[in-house]
Design a protein around this nucleic acid. Sequence first.
DNA 1: CTACAGTTCCTAGATATATTAGGCAAACAC
DNA 2: GTGTTTGCCTAATATATCTAGGAACTGTAG
Lengths: 196, 196
Amino acid sequence: MARAGLTAERVTRAAADLADAVGFENITVSALARSFGVKDASLYSHVRNLRELRERVALLAAEELADRIAAAVAGRAGKDAMVAFANAYRDYALAHPGRYTATQAVQPSPAVLAGSTVHVRTVELTHAMLRAYDLVEPDLTDAGRLLRSAFHGYVTLEANGGFRHPRDVRRSWERSLDGLHIALANWPAKDPRPLH
Amino acid sequence: MARAGLTAERVTRAAADLADAVGFENITVSALARSFGVKDASLYSHVRNLRELRERVALLAAEELADRIAAAVAGRAGKDAMVAFANAYRDYALAHPGRYTATQAVQPSPAVLAGSTVHVRTVELTHAMLRAYDLVEPDLTDAGRLLRSAFHGYVTLEANGGFRHPRDVRRSWERSLDGLHIALANWPAKDPRPLH
DNA sequence: CTACAGTTCCTAGATATATTAGGCAAACAC
DNA sequence: GTGTTTGCCTAATATATCTAGGAACTGTAG
């Protein structure tokens, strides 16, 4: 019988596509094997187990997402950069729900973390996006965490049908970005006085 | 043989505890049956299937969370209410990771949605918290979505080890809430002029 | 107290999944 | 062409969900 020509790469990519189609938590070795027309056991020559497969998908997705963001923020600064970052993030998450879920659902093993630069890259991109807001540590980290939280939370809730109000979700998103910009541009001093 | 005294209630509560212990996605009918000392099949007299079990856990958790939030915001207004809401939210999510995940991972069936008031309650609580900021629709919905996103995103990332920088996570949280307050207190007009 | 009715829990079994061990044969190296 | 590597196979085990049908427990009415 002719060989299917599997490699760890192709298996990972197929798993990512499957995740986008049926949801990250529903990818199975069996379904993947079926899609290649091979037996389940055959995949174990290329991938240690399901856990590693998911980790690979997560890493692939994280790279792709970072690439999109890097392309989006290049040559932009201030609110422009922030909005570009945010939209690249959201567009990717909505276009690739399974891949995006992978980036969040899998916490990379220390080995993987050490062997890849994606996470460092992502932090650098975040800081680059924030540069024009003139924040210094620890405000930079705090603001970065707020932004990541807001982006992640928004796309997650949106993708899971968490926004049931008829208000257009895209407009809410734009307004939320306006709100975040306000927060960044007026980032509170360390000893905040009540504002009202 | 003496009966175990199962009910849908007790099974659901046990499933919620199990979820907090091992993670929502790792709850199984088998493990649950073991914890009661009964056979797997016995649980199917009380719960239709795994899907329904998860839905029940999600509903239980949503109620609990709404209760905590309601207690926290009672008698508070403005930033005070917002911070109390946020902290109740985060405390619950961190103390009950499995239950919290359930509230997000399960999108309730229309039947469940109709039979419960939790979701309406949650929206009402959110609007009540925002009352002092003097927002009108659609800004109210937009701001509410931003807050929910930020809260959800933050606790999810925190619980999944997404914040690896040494900066104290709790302080970042407090500063993020300060930032959100700034955004709410200065919610952008419909036709925002650039601020820099 | 007894018989009936409903419910709880059981045994047995079908199906799906992850994963390992060991084998045959295709692809490649020389 | 021979030999080695490697890709995919069969076979088997363990665990999961879920259904069908039976037995035993519990409460209720005579």
